[in-house]
């Protein structure tokens, strides 16, 4: 869907992005992660030509992005940024309807689309449609920003640290919402962040960048298990890697069928992560948990030995 082929960007003598190649498959959520100044934002902004690449080729669905007019290209891609960039003199509804208006949709269709998106992002129409951006909280403004990016139903969504300025609780709930949205909409998303937890939580495809180059890319678990070098390892949290990996694995993957023993008192949902299971064990001073399904029916059990991945359970 999106292909970067030996792409380089120079600003004068400085090389911001150095010969990177990257493919993002349709429906995939690709996260570019790295420290400040590693070129991840530059890479993102080259895709919608806010920055023109110096060398190499960038393709969208097999076509060079330079074959499109800039405006046409950008209207095909949603774009959400950290500062939201909502127009302060426009209402929420008008902000969301921006790209459909640029594409000259009929008014009734725009109205219907705005209502649909506000419902999708959990913004009550009566409450928010007429509000101005300065009347919104950070989380609400970012929801509006995402709704605006989705307005013309683009296949591609570019997100530049969209949740970076939010408090941790709002950030986590928006990450969760993005995952749910993505499960329903199957957009091709390129997401930039410097927050490794966010990257691991969201990514199908994780790309670690450092000094303008891609140091490693692959599925989050692959990177956790086999970091290419010390930099990737430290970015992944060094000693914390075990917990980060545990956060990516569901309880259902390690649980054993219910045995003859009495059910353990403490319970954990089968969709919960191993990290949460470990936390429950630590908190309750318990070495065994009963795994339950969504209806709270026991379906298996999880022991500490099993959780930490020891070969067999005795």
């Amino acid at each position: 869907m999106i292909d970067l082929i030996h792409v380089t960007k120079r600003f004068g003598a400085a090389t911001a992005v150095d010969d990177i190649s990257l493919s993002v498959a349709r429906g995939e959520l690709c996260v570019l992660v790295g420290t400040s100044g590693c070129g991840k934002s530059t890479t993102l902004r080259m895709i919608n030509r806010l920055i023109e690449h110096s060398e190499g080729e960038i393709h969208i669905e097999g076509q060079q992005i330079r074959a499109f007019r800039q405006e046409t290209l950008r209207r095909r891609m949603g774009y959400a940024i950290q500062s939201t960039g909502l127009f302060p003199h426009w209402t929420v509804a008008r902000n969301i309807g921006l790209v459909p208006r640029l594409l000259k949709w009929p008014a009734a269709k725009i109205q219907a689309r705005v209502e649909e998106l506000m419902a999708l992002l959990g913004l009550a129409m009566e409450e928010f449609a007429g509000k101005y951006p300065h009347q919104l909280s950070g989380g609400q403004a970012q929801r509006v920003g995402v709704a605006r990016a989705l307005a013309a139903d683009p296949d591609i969504l570019l997100m530049d640290e969209p949740f970076g300025a939010l408090d941790p609780i709002t950030r986590e709930s928006l990450q969760e919402e993005l995952r749910e949205l993505q499960a329903r909409l199957h957009k091709t998303i390129v997401f930039v962040t410097h927050d490794m937890d966010e990257a691991l939580r969201l990514a199908d495809h994780l790309v670690v960048m450092h000094q303008g180059r891609i140091v490693q890319q692959g599925r989050p678990l692959e990177l956790l298990r086999e970091p290419a070098d010390g930099f990737v390892e430290s970015l992944l949290g060094g000693e914390d890697r075990g917990l980060k990996e545990a956060a990516l694995l569901p309880v259902s993957q390690r649980m054993l069928p219910l045995g003859p023993r009495r059910l353990a008192r403490e319970r954990i949902g089968q969709q919960a992560s191993l990290r949460e299971a470990l936390s429950v064990m630590l908190w309750r001073h318990s070495e065994r948990l009963t795994v339950v399904d969504d209806d709270d029916m026991p379906v298996g059990e999880l022991s500490l030995r099993r959780l930490v991945g020891a070969r067999s359970d005795d």
């Binding site: 919608n48 405006e71 950008r74 209207r75 940024i81 500062s83 127009f87 921006l98 920003g145």
Partner: peptide, 18 residues
Amino acid sequence: IDPGVMEAARGMGMSGGQ
């Protein structure tokens, strides 16, 4: 004008005149 607003305006595909 807030640079974020200008960046969003360009990123959304508005032309210079718009």
